[in-house]
């Protein structure tokens, strides 16, 4: 028989594991459920340079393993399984997974976010056949080829700079006339000889059947459409919160995020929202970790008043 946990954490990224570490270290019995392996989006990141304490940077995968070990040192338990349903409103909360039902007095939602897709016809079919959401994973397959990156944030800028070293030609397509990406990227992008900016434009179609052969681009200002031959398209247009699991039980904002404040408390007592799925101004490993610590603190307070 599974125990009644003090805390069930859903999601094994930096937010989830910080909550687990703080709660377990405070003596709570903690179960963390992760559908893939520890790390979340962080685990997919090649090098993280902006998490303090790692002067040479650290691989996201390695950092995830360390966070997991840190929480396990205080007896937090990790189970790798997908959560299919939750019941949050009652005192004893229920989390239904592919491997069984778990019960907890508190639940920390740390399900993170996933890359936003273009939502174009054929995108699904061409994923892994020219369309990619991870430049550091798939860049090697496009050595000396022509690729396009779509997006204007930090991920798009970093992807374009990574790809310019491998590819013959890189186009960076952005729907506005200036990048949202941090200034550190601007100069290297401007200097790259094989990189061309395509401003004010959106990708409107994908060409190719078995493999991507090109894309259609529409200039939003002139309304002109053009086609562009390319072997690869790297999509970096932001993320979507993984909040489908709770959308019937918690109010979400218009973009799908959970509107919890800095206490991470949601509208349901004993339920907390941490990391990328919470409405907040900056989504980083360090802010997710911070949310986790705060959630553990308020979870403890909640349990003490029961």
């Amino acid at each position: 028989m599974e125990p009644l946990y003090d805390m069930i954490v859903i999601g094994g990224g930096p937010g989830g594991y910080s909550a687990a570490l703080y709660a377990a270290r405070a003596g709570l019995q903690v179960l963390l459920l992760e559908q893939l392996s520890p790390g979340g989006q962080m685990g997919l990141t090649d090098t993280i340079d902006n998490y303090p304490g790692f002067p040479q940077g650290v691989s996201g995968f390695e950092l995830a393993q360390k966070m997991k070990e840190g929480a396990e040192r205080f007896h937090a338990v990790t189970k790798l399984t997908k959560v299919v349903r939750v019941r949050l409103s009652q005192e004893e909360k229920e989390v239904v997974t592919a491997q069984g039902v778990y019960r907890g007095k508190t639940v920390v939602l740390a399900c993170g976010a996933r890359p936003r897709t273009l939502e174009l016809p054929k995108e699904d079919r061409l994923t892994g056949r020219g369309v990619s959401y991870c430049a550091t994973c798939d860049g090697m397959f496009y050595r000396r080829k022509t690729v396009a990156v779509v997006g204007g944030g930090n991920t798009a800028a970093a992807d374009a700079l990574y790809l310019k070293n491998l590819c013959e030609k890189v186009y960076l397509i952005h729907r506005r006339d200036s990048l949202r990406a941090s200034r550190v990227y601007w100069e290297p992008l401007r200097k790259a000889e094989n990189l061309e900016m395509i401003w004010d434009s959106q990708v409107t179609a994908l060409f190719g059947e078995e493999k991507l052969s090109g894309i259609a681009i529409k200039n939003k200002k002139t309304g002109k459409e053009a086609s562009l031959s390319c072997d690869g398209l790297f999509v970096a247009i932001g993320t979507l919160p993984n909040t489908e699991l709770v959308r019937e039980q918690l109010k979400l904002d218009e973009a799908g995020y959970i509107p919890a404040d800095e206490t991470t408390r949601t509208e349901i007592p004993g339920v907390f929202a941490v990391g990328d799925l919470r409405r907040k101004p900056l989504r980083q490993v360090v802010t997710a970790a911070s949310d986790g610590a705060v959630a553990a603190h308020f979870a403890e307070e909640y349990l003490a008043t029961r």
């Binding site: 893939l36 685990g43 995830a64 991870c134 994973c137």
Partner: peptide
């Protein structure tokens, strides 16, 4: 060299 491969 592939981060997601390590996770998988």
């Amino acid at each position: 060299w592939c981060g997601p491969c390590k996770m998988f």
